[in-house]
Design a protein around this nucleic acid. Structure first.
Length: 444
RNA sequence: GUGGCUGUAGCUCAGCUGGUAGAGCACCGGGUUGUGGUCCCGGGUGUCGUGGGUUCAAGUCCCAUCAGUCACCCCA
């Protein structure tokens, strides 16, 4: 019974083998970098109770819910479970659940798929991978983590062959304090309105501030002036001061942001800019907020975002403030794989193809392959005893760098099919250059 | 989730006002009967995204649907 050819599912991308290999390489590279900074690997289940996912009134989230197919037809209830839409909320739950067994400050990384039911387009999927790092502590979290995490991200992104990235950083205390000091009725609403400045322009923001918050001309002018501030060093503080607004929370925010920007400028020059219009949508952020854009792909949106959250992991009197950043792995890969700007040096793990002289030689060739594998060299034997030209082409199509030709006396020659160089080798000692041992990421 | 645009071979695309499809590259076979890439010769490999409808006749017109993409929303 033919069911016809299956079609793709909107928003659920599946890369071809070459892309899969690229994603694996990217994830491995990120994992190594995170571990180098002492972050422990962690995975959480795919599902969370809906009340966990929807806490903080995040009802706008397009959460996929789980329901048993076998549920009674007249049973309208669901399981009360939903797929997580990010890795921060599940992590906060995990911390609360295991607080007694964890050591604080607790730092972990987590690389997993997430699900959101929104309309897909380039860089936006319904199933997508995030690579998330967070640090949480008990009761209070030292501000220096807000400086450290961007540097870890700088290392991680720097280890990948990507276009230059720029991280725009702001501090909610700065914005909120500024609007409070300015005398606006609803500082949080002002933050959200000003965040739209790239969409609706300064005039639109001004009009909205006036109509929704009753802001005066002077207040609107001050808000727009703040939103214009964007500096690669600590000089933003002088420009904020020049606006003549005073508020204790504002001062705190300026101090924290100054530390982030100046430290980043020292350790990762060119990565971070203070950008006082950045707000971030998620309302659980309470301090530093981050958004990162790839140069030349700004329209793709942020490829790494996060911030400090003081109240996400709280239960009763227990409080575990944290700060985290998430890299949008699928967003980056969808763009770069889609445009063939990021590839792997080969489409299979195989380093050596053992040529098959004739069918009777297969056992001997299998032994040769086993010998190489024992030394960690990924090896496969040619699928059929075709003409050597065909066998070489088999390797070439897949990017396999070496073809091994056995001879009748138990020796072998290995050909580097990129250069055409072919030499007799000792099977029990030959080793490829380290660069050829595994597929690597490559830009084209 | 709302709205717009797009959908022909593996890829990039052509196909005028309706007459059951074509180019380049790629791929396959051979020249070269066991060492690829160059060159030469030969081969079209296709449910025109899918399903309906109009028509004597649909790749072409209409509707729906799926997918991609863009804007909104939101955000990785």
């Amino acid at each position: 019974m033919s069911q016809g050819k299956p079609t793709p599912l909107s928003g659920f991308p599946e890369w071809l083998p070459a892309g899969q290999l690229v994603q694996r390489q990217v994830i491995d590279t990120l994992s190594r970098t995170f571990e180098l900074h002492g972050f422990a690997p962690l995975s959480t289940r795919a599902v969370e109770p809906l009340d966990q996912l929807l806490r903080k009134g995040e009802t706008s989230k397009e959460v996929y819910v789980l329901r048993r197919l076998q549920a009674d037809a007249d049973d309208a209830s669901d399981s009360g479970l939903g797929l997580h839409f990010d890795l921060t909320v599940p992590f906060a739950r995990y911390v609360l659940e295991n607080a007694g067994k964890l050591q604080f400050p607790f730092r972990r990384y987590q690389i997993q798929p997430c699900w959101r039911g929104e309309r897909p387009q380039e860089g936006r999927y319904r199933e997508f991978w995030q690579a998330d790092i967070d640090v949480v502590d008990r009761d209070t979290l030292s501000p220096h983590y807000e400086v450290e995490l961007p540097l870890v991200i700088a290392d991680a992104l720097g280890a990948l062959p990507l276009p230059k990235a720029t991280m725009h950083v702001n501090n909610r205390k700065l914005s909120q304090g500024f609007y409070t000091g300015l005398g606006l009725s609803d500082p949080m609403a002002a933050i959200r309105i000003v965040d739209k400045i790239d969409k609706i322009g300064p005039a639109g923001v001004g009009a909205t501030l006036a109509s929704e918050l009753g802001a005066s001309d002077a207040q609107v002018k001050a808000c727009l002036a703040l939103a214009e501030i964007r500096t690669a060093d600590g000089s933003f503080a002088d420009r904020v001061a020049a606006l003549g607004v005073s508020d204790p929370l504002l001062d705190e925010g300026v101090e924290e942001l100054t530390r982030v920007v100046e430290t980043a400028a020292e350790h990762a020059p060119g990565l971070v800019v203070a950008d006082l219009r950045i707000a971030r949508g998620l309302d659980y952020y309470t301090g530093t907020v981050y958004e990162t854009f790839l140069d030349g792909a700004e329209a793709l949106g942020s490829i790494c975002s996060g911030g400090r959250y003081d109240n996400l992991a709280t239960a009763g009197t227990e409080s575990y403030p944290g700060v985290g950043l998430s890299i949008g792995v699928s967003r980056i890969l969808g763009r770069l794989i889609g445009r063939a700007e990021l590839t792997a040096t080969r489409t299979v793990p195989t380093c050596v193809l053992v040529a098959l002289p004739d069918d009777a030689s297969r056992p001997a060739c299998d032994r040769i392959a086993a010998t190489l594998r024992r030394r960690g060299i990924a090896t496969e034997v040619a699928p059929a005893a075709q003409k050597y030209g065909k066998q070489i082409r088999f390797a070439q199509r897949r990017g396999i760098p070496y073809v091994l030709f056995p001879d009748a006396e138990g020796g072998a020659e290995i050909r580097d099919i990129r250069s055409g160089e072919q030499t007799a080798v000792q099977l029990d000692s030959w080793q490829p250059p380290a660069a050829d041992l595994h597929p690597r990421l490559a830009t084209e």
